[in-house]
C-alpha cells in the first residue's frame, strides 16, 4: 500500500488522514511554539498586547455558489479564524493565483465581493499579490488570505479548561455550506432553499465579551464539520461530549441532501458558524444574546461535556447511543 508515498485527495479532507499528514509532516517540523495544538490562529506577543495571526487558502469549486463566492469566503474564512481565537480582525492580505482564461468579469465580481465582505467585517486589505498561471495549472482562481487581529480582553480560551458539566452551543444551522457547494458543483437541484452559510462571526464573538471568562472554547466548524471539532476537543482527555440528536440544528435542504447522498451532516463544513463550549452558567445568556442577532437566530445548545473517555457520542431519536467519529476525508473535496 502506498498511502504513505503519494498524496491522495483524502489527505486534504479535514478528517483523520489530514490530521495524520499534518501531524507527521508539519507538526513534527514546526509544531513547537505558536503552532502547538494547531489553533485556528496563532496568538503572538506584540509589545504589551497580543496579536492574532492566521492564514487560509481557498480553492472552492465552483467559484460562485448559492450564498457566496470564493471572494467573500476568503475574507470570512480568515476573519472567522481570528474571531474564534478571541480576536478582533484588523488587516488582511490577499494573494490571487489566476488561471489563464478566467473572464475579467468573473474576477471583477469576486474582487467586488472581497471589498464588500472586508468592509462588512471592518477589516482592511493591507497587502496583496497577483500571479497568473497557464491554462490547466490551477482551476480558475485560487485565493489566499492572511489576517492579523487584536486579542479581545477577557477571553481565556483554552481546551484544557473544558470540564464535565460544560455545555456545547452552535450559533446556527450546521453544514449548509458544504452541501450548498456540493449541490452547485453536481447540479443537484433540491429547490432553492439550500444556501451556503458563508458569513462573518466576529459580531457573535464581540456580543459575548461580557461572559468571556466563562467561554472555554470556540471554533468555526469548517472542513470535517462538527464531528472533527468535537473529537479534537476530547482527544487525549478524560472527558467526553454527548450530543442530543433532537437538538441538532440542520436546515431542511441539508437534511434532504444528507439523506440523498448518505453523507453525515456532522462531517460537513459550515463557513459562518461558531461552535462554543462554555460553563453551563452562561449557556442561556449566550443563546438569548445570539438569537437576537441576525447571524445567530438559529443558535442551539447541542450537547454536554460528560465524564467519558475521550469520545463524542450522540443520543439518537430511538434513545440509543452511538459514537460520533471523525470523517475519513475526501467526502467533499474543494469546498473552501
Amino acid at each position: 500500500m502506498n498511502s504513505d508515498t503519494t498524496i491522495q485527495l483524502a489527505h486534504g479532507g479535514g478528517g483523520r488522514l489530514s490530521r495524520d499528514l499534518i501531524n507527521a509532516e508539519i507538526v513534527s517540523r514546526f509544531g513547537q511554539g505558536p503552532l502547538e495544538g494547531l489553533p485556528d490562529a496563532a496568538t503572538l506577543p506584540w509589545n504589551s498586547k497580543k496579536m492574532i495571526f492566521t492564514t487560509d487558502s481557498f480553492v472552492v469549486q465552483p467559484l460562485e455558489f448559492p450564498g457566496g463566492n470564493i471572494g467573500d469566503l476568503a475574507v470570512y474564512g480568515t476573519v472567522n479564524d481570528i474571531s474564534v481565537c478571541g480576536g478582533t480582525p484588523k488587516w488582511l492580505s490577499m494573494g490571487l493565483i489566476i488561471e489563464e482564461g478566467l473572464s475579467i468579469s468573473t474576477l471583477r465580481h469576486i474582487l467586488d465581493s472581497i471589498k464588500t465582505a472586508a468592509s462588512a467585517c471592518g477589516v482592511v486589505i493591507a497587502t496583496g499579490d497577483t500571479k497568473v498561471v497557464g491554462r490547466g495549472q490551477c482551476d480558475g482562481l485560487f485565493v489566499n488570505t492572511s489576517g492579523i487581529g487584536e486579542a479581545i480582553d477577557g477571553f481565556n480560551l483554552n481546551q484544557a479548561r473544558i470540564a464535565e458539566g460544560d455545555e456545547v452551543i452552535a450559533s446556527g444551522n450546521l453544514a449548509d455550506h458544504g452541501f450548498a457547494v456540493l449541490a452547485a458543483r453536481q447540479n443537484i437541484n433540491i429547490g432553492s432553499t439550500l444556501k451556503s452559510d458563508t458569513a462573518p462571526v466576529h459580531r457573535l464573538v464581540e456580543a459575548v465579551q461580557e461572559y468571556a471568562c466563562e467561554v472555554k472554547f470556540m471554533r468555526d466548524p469548517t472542513r470535517g464539520g462538527l464531528a472533527s471539532v468535537l473529537n479534537e476537543v476530547v482527544e487525549n482527555r478524560n472527558i467526553g461530549i454527548c450530543l442530543d440528536e433532537t437538538d441538532l440544528p440542520f436546515s431542511t435542504g441539508t437534511k434532504a441532501l444528507s439523506e440523498m447522498l448518505g453523507i453525515d451532516p456532522l462531517h460537513v463544513a459550515s463557513e459562518g458558524r461558531i461552535v462554543m463550549i462554555c460553563s453551563h452558567l452562561i449557556t442561556e445568556k449566550i443563546l438569548t444574546r445570539w438569537r437576537n442577532m441576525p447571524e445567530g437566530t438559529g443558535a442551539m445548545k447541542i450537547g454536554t461535556v460528560i465524564n467519558d473517555k475521550n469520545r463524542v457520542t450522540i443520543k439518537t431519536i430511538t434513545g440509543g447511543k452511538r459514537i460520533v467519529d471523525v470523517p475519513r476525508g475526501e467526502l467533499l473535496p474543494r469546498i473552501c
Binding site: I314, K315, T316, I317, T318, G319, G320, K321, R322
Partner: peptide
C-alpha cells in the same frame, strides 16, 4: 441500526 443506536436499546 448502528447510526440510530438500535442495538444499544
Amino acid at each position: 441500526i448502528a447510526r440510530f443506536g438500535i442495538r444499544d436499546i
